[in-house]
Design a protein around this nucleic acid. Structure first.
Lengths: 215, 215
DNA sequence: GTCCCAAGTAGACAGTGGTTACTTTCGGGC
DNA sequence: GCCCGAAAGTAACCACTGTCTACTTGGGAC
């Protein structure tokens, strides 16, 4: 139920409904949020959007196409939020933190989006390369931070790709645990998602070792 | 399709089938591995186990109970493998690495188990507290490593819980990305899951900063 | 004002899935 | 050798889902 800007992403406002495509995506997100992913069906989505069960086929070839649209929007929004938050910082290291915090916050604030983006759907098809493209943008932002940190002489050198994968793993893991509610069942409490994200990204940068032991 | 020891976990070998309960769990894992999680149905599981579709109800109250049994076994196996791998190391830091590597390797070698364990199933019910218990064992092993490292003066002090959550996030994220095949689509390649896990856990311990910058 | 065509409706079909009630099989205790 | 009860089989119910086809609506171009 994230607040959603009425951007002019879809050019044609459509005839009868206004913007059914938009409404279907939102209905999907709401349904996943309230009933869980397994409850998501085209028919129920259509009902939520206030149309009959065949109407979605005017906008999406099939169920998978709808999911792909949801995921693609998610990747785009996430990259946008990461960029925004990173732009508020100047130091490469701070930008790195901002990058990770934005990733986790997006997941927590848009759990339905996150589930679709990284779920086990999408049975093959090269059709969804839009997803890989959009997802690549986010990872590109992260890698850019890392390389800048290396060039500034702040971060350890060498191939930045493994470093980026590690950073991605960290924030993706935290996001997954939060979205799936695992941390609620574990003995966590107290720290907010943002605090957790900031703490963990700092920890990855600084290391678990005692400062005196390092170097 | 992980190799499975015929341990005496279930006392009663049952009458007609031999051990249908065991067979149903294995069939579930095989089905998820081959057809994906969404293809998992009680009827198909029963067919794979060589019985009719109503037979599973002699051993599980409903579909969710079967999933819970799968997940619980997964948590138990994972904790066991973590313990084994940790016991091969003596230094707390090395044990920490072993702990993380075992987590990731379990996920990669038992992706079906992993998906069930951390999937969005299990609609409420306190019945599944067996899951939380078994899951807690794994996390307990991790926390034990951390505290030992602190007591040995190797790791930074303070509340060990946030440190443990960070370590968990890292390995859980890597495991998730590998299991969901995201790293295949990204420009990864070259490093094996074990190498990735070891590299990343080391990185978390030592930090991203240049050694000279740290401390 | 008319006509066209996208958008949406109504209905149907085939397949699947979870679940339950009743029946049959068969190993072991007596 | 008989009988009980657990384990598995059989059959059916009912709900739901994705998708297709044919029909209707209504706004805008002309």
């Amino acid at each position: 139920m994230a607040a959603r800007k009425k951007t002019s992403s879809q050019p044609k406002p459509s005839y009868h409904h206004g913007d059914l495509r938009r409404a279907l995506i939102d209905a999907s997100l709401g349904l996943i949020a309230e009933e869980g992913f397994s409850a998501l069906s085209l028919r129920e989505v259509a009902k939520r959007a206030g149309v009959t069960h065949a109407a979605p086929y005017r906008h999406f070839a099939d169920k998978e196409a709808l999911l792909a649209a949801v995921a693609e929007e998610g990747f785009r929004t996430m990259a946008e939020q990461m960029r925004q938050r990173m732009d508020e910082e100047s130091s490469p290291v701070e930008r790195l933190h901002a990058c990770g915090v934005a990733y986790v916050l997006f997941a927590v604030q848009n759990p339905s989006h996150f589930r679709v983006m990284f779920g086990p759907h999408f049975t093959r098809k090269g059709e969804h390369q839009g997803l890989a493209t959009e997802g690549g943008h986010s990872f590109g932002l992260l890698m850019q931070c890392l390389v800048q940190g290396q060039q500034a002489g702040l971060l350890r050198g060498g191939d930045p790709l493994p470093l980026g994968l590690a950073a991605w793993s960290l924030v993706h893991g935290l996001a997954s645990l939060l979205v799936d509610g695992v941390l609620q069942r574990a003995g966590n409490s107290t720290m907010s998602p943002e605090e957790l994200a900031l703490f963990q990204t700092r920890l990855l940068v600084e290391g678990l070792l005692l400062p005196a032991q390092n170097g």
